[in-house]
Design a protein around this nucleic acid. Structure first.
Lengths: 221, 221
DNA sequence: GGCCTAAGAAGTGTCGACACTTTAAAACGC
DNA sequence: GCGTTTTAAAGTGTCGACACTTCTTAGGCC
């Protein structure tokens, strides 16, 4: 009999330079190293990463599908600009996916999950900057999506995360670092979330996550 | 002043052989031309499409991110096998996205939209095979997602569509064509959907779509 | 000086080549 | 005949090359 071990392969990243370039370039984009709208020429990037154009090209295709770069009709590549209108789309899509994720995560929630999230929220209260708070925030949301046990949910969610982070870093550039005051509303929303995830119904968890994510649309600069 | 027309570029598909190969190969996969799990060697595909390996390679990367093919650790590419467990993930993700889409579509629903969907449902009652019915079904769901006006929702949804169709074509291979009897439940679900989309509340539309999509999980063979 | 034009520079799309790795097949021993 | 080892075939990863297109800059004209 054939089909020794079919398994639908959760994720088998090829171990080549293309994926390395992909990950590095993504990190550089969401770090704000390349301003939005700036050109990404293959020869330049190839030199930057000490490789040839082929791996760079593959990485750009992956990044385009993640929504971090765009191809113009002429083939030129640019860092995608994410405006307020895009933020709305991102948050609506996040709300859809994370609400379902919360529903599923509620189903198989453990005390270890509660510990992780509680610890994360605790750190949020001590956060000293927007950047630190949003990092903790994304960690928490990533954790819930993972807890759903649905790998496709996670795969669809990740690009939204990168796009959101690329948007945030642009905001941080404009805002001065010292006008930060603790975001009590965000923390409060997370506490409510933890409560329904651990001891609420699936429908309550879904609703709470939906409200929590959509609430942040108004954040738009 | 710079930034002449920023616009976040909805979708600018490069007009090259790579995208052509991508679209053709995708169509061939969801048509069942390549059985699930079969190997996709770049030189063979290159010959098949009368091109070199470079465009084929780019197409495979795009298809991997769509979930239609998988890369093994050795770099070999295979058509992804979609089992019942995968179907569950797909339908949960679809339910999440389409529920939000229905909520948004309800908001800006027009009589023209009602006409399109009503005509589609009318055709469903006359469908003579599983294949025809499911084609109409996907057309309808695609229409609703488009009506949401949220391009990211559509972009995230499309890969789920291809995966679902790849699953269906495998089912069709096993089932004989003549044991088809009209799926009255599907049609009934769509009528209910049309009703809430045109004259219900956003929450009702979201709930109806959620129920309708999740109902189909039990379809699993 | 401002505008149009034309050479030059830069970039993309595609190809073939080659080293290295993995798979498949053939040869060998028992 | 069956299992093991060796050898050949097939495949991937990466590179450089070249034609063609697009952008940019310098020159000329008014």
């Amino acid at each position: 009999m054939a089909t020794p071990q079919a398994q639908s392969s959760p994720r088998a990243p090829r171990n080549n330079r293309a994926t390395a370039v992909h990950l590095r370039l993504r990190k550089e984009i969401v770090s704000g190293l390349f301003p939005q709208g700036s050109a990404l020429a293959e020869p330049t990037l190839a030199e930057h990463f000490h490789t040839s154009r082929a791996p760079v090209r593959e990485a750009l295709i992956a990044l385009e599908r993640e929504g971090l770069v765009t191809f113009e009709k002429t083939g030129r590549t640019r860092v995608r600009t994410i405006a307020a209108k895009d933020l709305r789309e991102i948050m609506e899509a996040r709300a859809a996916l994370e609400s379902m994720a919360a529903r599923l995560a509620n189903w198989n929630w453990t005390t270890a999950d509660t510990d992780f999230v509680a610890k994360n929220i605790e750190q949020q209260t001590k956060a000293g900057s927007f950047a630190e708070l949003s990092r903790l925030d994304m960690d928490l949301h990533h954790y819930v999506v993972t807890c759903s046990g649905n790998l496709r949910l996670l795969q669809l969610w990740e690009p939204l995360r990168w796009q959101y982070e690329a948007y945030l870093v642009e905001i941080f550039k404009r805002r001065s670092a010292d006008d930060y005051r603790p975001e009590t509303e965000t923390v409060l929303g997370h506490r409510k979330l933890l409560q329904v995830l651990s001891s609420g119904t699936p429908a309550e968890a879904a609703q709470a996550m939906m409200d929590h994510v959509l609430f942040n649309i108004s954040w738009a600069d």
